[in-house]
Structure formats: C-alpha cells, structure tokens
Amino acid sequence: MLMALPIRIKLFSRHWPHDPEVRIIQKTKAMTKSIISDMDGVIYRGKALIPGANDFVQRLLKSNVPFLFLTNNAEQTPLDLKLKLEHLGIKGLTEDNFITSAMATAMFLKNQKENATVYVVGGGGLINELYNVGFSISESNPDYVVVGKTTSLSYEQLKKAVRLIDGGAKFIGTNPDMIDPVEGGNEPAAGTILAAIAAATGKTPYIVGKPNALMMTLATRKLGVHPDDAVMIGDRMDTDIVGGMEAGMTTVLVLSGVSTKESIKAFPYKPDHIFNNVGEIDPAVL
C-alpha cells in the first residue's frame, strides 16, 4: 500500500509537498533505495582495493540496504569474486550478492534457444555459466560464438571465431568495455576482442552486458525492486551511467576508475551524483 501512495499523490494531488504523510513515505522510500554497484574501478583496480570500498560495503551490510554487485567482468564466477573480495579484506558477502555479464549472457541465450552449442572466446567464468544452463561447448557448427575478455587470447581462437561466424554462427558479446582499470593503468578488455572479430567478419555482435538495459533489469528483478527505487554506482559514463539512466535508476559516478571530471563533458548526459570514491557515499541519502 505504502509503495503505491507516493505515485498517486505525486500525480493527482496539488498539495502533496505539504502533506506530512507523504513526507514520511518519501523519507522511508529514500532510506530503503537499493544499491546496484559496479566492481572494477569502483571497489578495486585489478588486485588493489580502492580506498573507502570496505567501509562502503560494511555500511551496506550493517544498514540492511538491499544491494548487488553487477559487473561486466565475465572471467570470474560469483564465488571467485566473493573470494577475491575476502582476500582484499571485504568480509560478509555471499555469492548471491553478485551478477556478472557471463551470468546474464547465459540466461539470455537460454531464453533464446534450449540446449544450444557454443564456441567460446573467454575465461572460465563464462564457460562455467554456459555449462550451468545446459549448453555444450563445440567447435563444430555451433549455434553461437560467445566472446568475453580473456587473458589467454590466441590468434587461433580469433581465426576459429571468424570462420564460425562466417559460417552462420550468431555473434554474441558479454560486454563492450574496451579497457579495464587495473593497478598501474588500464588493460584491453572484451570490447577490443569483439572489435577485431567484427572487423574481420563485417558482423556486429549482440552485446548482453552494460549498457544493455537487460543487465539492469536482471539486477532489479533479483532485488525485487522497481528501477525508480534503485541506484546504479559505476566508474564509466559509457556503460554504468548510461545504462542506469536508460533503465530509470538514480546514477552515481565515482572517479576512481575510467571516467574523469574532464571526460564527463564529452557526453550528452550526466550522472545524478559524482564522488571521488565509494567511501564518500552514504546509501541512506541517495
């Protein structure tokens, strides 16, 4: 009942700002706004924890704010990410606190075709998620070529992917990120591999991860909230912020990853809030 009242009042009452009941409802709604946060460039850079990240996560846990870490990283499983954060000093998380672009890609493809065959250019996390939904990995006339970031990319993999796509396999990308922030700088990401294959085949991949609203929809469904009641925190204007904005979320940019104050000016949209890092964020006031 309470969740519906602000909408009706905001639309139909001219006096709602002066109604004490409405102010109470609005405050309650704001305090319970769910958090969806990116990881790379927000919580860590490569193997280094970003200052304030642990304090931010502990605030989420202690306040019982519903939250998810939503990452375009398709190399690692939720268990891998949980263990990585524990190694970096962040305790108290479970595998249910994570959604990766590999998970989203697997769920998307399962809805398209049951028991499909796929050829994968990507890491173990992507292969694991595809196995989890019943797909077989094959180099012989697969239904899909699925491409994500991998640090073990070879020329033979690129050649095989190109020939399979030329032969009719559908071209799927986990995410469009061209670079990933790591300690000491940046490194090539999934988008660079996709660009090479796209150039060779003349085909454009369908990309499942951010900024595709599909990722945002999966996250809000998992939390059981409407996008209006969720905040997207990220370090990239071209994926996190535009994806959150188009999904109808409040958007927060942190300057600890890819985007900078100067680079923001190049985009025709802007985030709702900007912070140096997540340590400065109080979830209760977003």
Rank of each mutant, 00 (worst) to 15 (best):
E262F: 00
G248I: 01
I172V: 15
P142G: 14
T100D: 02
A48L: 08
N115S: 11
S256I: 08
G257E: 05
V252P: 09
L70R: 05
N97I: 00
V145N: 15
P142Q: 14
V145E: 15
A161K: 08
D177P: 15
G173L: 08
V254T: 08
I241T: 03
E262H: 06
A169D: 10
V57G: 11
D55H: 07
K29N: 05
K62T: 04
T94V: 02
N128C: 08
L130E: 15
I35S: 05
Q76A: 04
F98N: 01
V145D: 15
P188R: 07
A230N: 04
T260Q: 05
V231C: 10
S263M: 12
I43A: 14
S259Y: 00
T174F: 09
A102M: 03
V65M: 01
K261R: 07
F135G: 13
N132L: 14
E95M: 09
E129L: 06
A195C: 13
G202D: 11
R221P: 08
K82E: 07
I24C: 06
D166I: 09
G46P: 01
G168L: 06
F108L: 03
H226L: 01
I264T: 08
F69S: 08
V278H: 10
N73P: 13
G248L: 04
T192G: 13
A161M: 14
K110Q: 15
P78V: 12
N212C: 07
H226M: 06
N212T: 08
D282M: 12
V162A: 12
I193C: 12
A104F: 03
G279Y: 08
Y131V: 15
R14E: 02
L253W: 04
S101H: 01
